[in-house]
Amino acid sequence: MNPLAWLTPDEWQAIRISLVVATRSVAFGLPLAVLAAYALVRGRFVGRALLDAAVHLPLVMPPVVVGWGLLLLFGVRGPLGSLLLDWFGVRLVFTTGGAALATAVMAFPLMVRAIRLSLEGIDPGLEAAARTLGAGPLDRFVTITLPLMAPGILAGGVVAFAAGLGEFGAVITFASNIPGETQTLPLAIYAATQVPGGEATAAKLSAVSFTLAVAGLLLSEVIARRMRRLLGM
């Protein structure tokens, strides 16, 4: 028996969409999360507390509200959405890209927190010493800060990926539930529970979700430990 036949093509498609959305959200969100974490830990500027709050907002707000906020901002009539459409011809609402954006926003605090934690563990004296040895700001960031916070970046990325596979509220609000386009795993599970006889699909996809989430968490632990050893910490 073909092992792929355990799931229907539609179910495989939901998994594929979930993987694509989570990957894109991490690829898009991680660099920004590094910048945000760096600014929060090392930055001395007015409004740092405000940035801190903004970064953590998705963690405490109902996801639906976040999705609705995105709809206001990035909808085709929204201030940012209309710009994207006019200038680049990019439409985010009801697209896989939109699902990735919603997922990235929701997972952003997770990434920032993990990176921030590893950044706070770096002795600023290392950079001071490097400075007196002739290393400028960018040089120090690339040769010291970035490698030393790599465990946090990787761990943050993996956790965000695992969480991103299951993002529901923000995605369904902003990107809707379109099979083959924005229907990720949780959306497919939700849809399955809404139709008679969908229990089997819901159960199978739930099992897949569970496995992916656990694997993600374990992987992030293993990576973080390996990295720390590799970095001599």
């Binding site: 002795d123 004296g125 290392l126 001071a128 010493a129 490097a130 040769t143 010291i144 490698p147 030393l148 590799l230 970095l231 001599g232 910490m233």
Partner: peptide, 8 residues
């Protein structure tokens, strides 16, 4: 005082 060698 503490050497501040780069650990990585």
């Amino acid at each position: 005082q503490d050497a501040k060698l780069l650990p990585h």
